[in-house]
């Protein structure tokens, strides 16, 4: 389980999903790649579980940039929402080939833009960065909370 001690918020991700995200990222190496994070919140809204991902149909990836479009993901989002318990769009993940999972200024702009976007209902979007810093894979889970980016440990 990942935790932000300062905020008392926690997160978990299913192992199979995490392994699958790491593998998908490796397939696109040395370019960046990513997708949408799906899951749900606990009743107390202090804990969230990432259960699925939606991969973009349209994207552009280079070793230093990943750009995705939402084209064609609407139906999948609705299907997840129809499940019991309901699953929501929680945030986004992307890779950092040959680098640490530390947000770049582009990443910080993206998470701000998501949090403030009128069509986004969640106040606290997540960002997972998978860093492939050979020979290790390192994960950085972040959440935007009150205009600040916090890292889970």
């Amino acid at each position: 389980m990942y935790r932000i001690n300062e905020l008392g918020l926690t997160l978990e991700i299913e192992d199979d999903l995490l392994c699958s995200l790491i593998d998908i990222g490796i397939k696109h190496y040395p370019n960046e790649f990513g997708g949408f994070l799906i899951g749900n919140y606990s009743e107390t809204q202090t804990h969230l579980i990432i259960t699925n991902t939606i991969l973009p149909n349209k994207f552009k990836g280079t070793p230093y940039l990943f750009e995705r479009d939402t084209i064609g993901i609407d139906d999948k989002l609705k299907q997840f929402y129809a499940e019991e318990p309901k699953k929501y769009y929680l945030g986004e993940w992307h890779t950092h080939p040959n680098n640490l999972p530390i947000p770049s200024s582009t990443d910080i702009n993206a998470i701000n833009s998501i949090a403030n976007h009128p069509e986004v209902s969640i106040k606290n979007p997540l960002m997972l960065i998978i860093g492939y810093d050979k020979p290790k894979v390192e994960l950085g889970f972040y959440v935007q909370f009150k205009n600040k980016l916090y890292r889970y440990e």
Binding site: D69, T70, Y88, E92, S121, I122
Partner: peptide
């Protein structure tokens, strides 16, 4: 974890760029 008052269902912004 909060929402903006209309539940948690969201559509992600159309284009987003990460680095």
């Amino acid at each position: 974890y909060e929402n903006k008052g209309n539940g948690f269902y969201s559509n992600p912004p159309k284009n987003e760029r990460f680095g």
